[in-house]
Design a protein around this nucleic acid. Sequence first.
DNA 1: TTTGATATACGAAAACTATCGTAGATATTT
DNA 2: AAATATCTACGATAGTTTTCGTATATCAAA
Lengths: 122, 122
Amino acid sequence: MDLKPTESELEILQVIWKKGQCSVRDVHEELAKNKEAGYTTTLKLMQIMHEKGLVERNTDAKSHLYKALITREQAQQGALDKIISTVFKGSTSDLVIQALGQHRASKDEIDAIKDYLKQFDK
Amino acid sequence: MDLKPTESELEILQVIWKKGQCSVRDVHEELAKNKEAGYTTTLKLMQIMHEKGLVERNTDAKSHLYKALITREQAQQGALDKIISTVFKGSTSDLVIQALGQHRASKDEIDAIKDYLKQFDK
DNA sequence: TTTGATATACGAAAACTATCGTAGATATTT
DNA sequence: AAATATCTACGATAGTTTTCGTATATCAAA
């Protein structure tokens, strides 16, 4: 399995991850909120995603229902691996520091990260 | 300016960032260490990057010298912004925790991050 | 049952990216 | 100066991704 969704495929996966199970129309209407695109474009993309094994679908009803076969965590990991090697010289800490520096994490987020780091103390 | 390098463009930028200023041959030889590709392919890509404004070049000598017009930090930020919005639901801390969890940061890296976080204590 | 709305299937065009070959200019070596 | 090496320019091709139009099936309402 390829496991490397394209940009548009990720937009679609976003919606499926959020809603759990979606018809093409569900996805299309969600995307239409932010973007201009034809219905058949979304349909075609989802059909291709099915061919690639990124999603499965139930074709019992007229309107097919799609589920993700790749988890958000898998996609996150893939995206991280890629940018760490292409722009962060392989350094995870560079990525973390850059992320924290620019994105103005909230106090709660900082605390969550501190808690997480405690597990490395022994 | 578009400011969103493609995959191949990033590979080239890596080399330029590292060396500071490069001829096409410099870049090509560096890339050839890890990858099979023709010289004119690299040349063409760098010409396109120049058209796009990703690099500037000095054409005084026969062999042109290229410099990056986008910093590594800008590229890092762009890459982070993209994946935070497409796969991390906008949550920086999710990204940080996922990055630390899987990428087995070294003790030094962990310490660097802890130091960094101290600045948020007041 | 006819009409209209909504589905899927699918081919093909459009857009973007990457790869390469060839031509011609410029420098270097013999 | 002639031969050789190296450079840029650039068109053409190939590959991938995205977009869309049209044909056809299915369902619901008039």
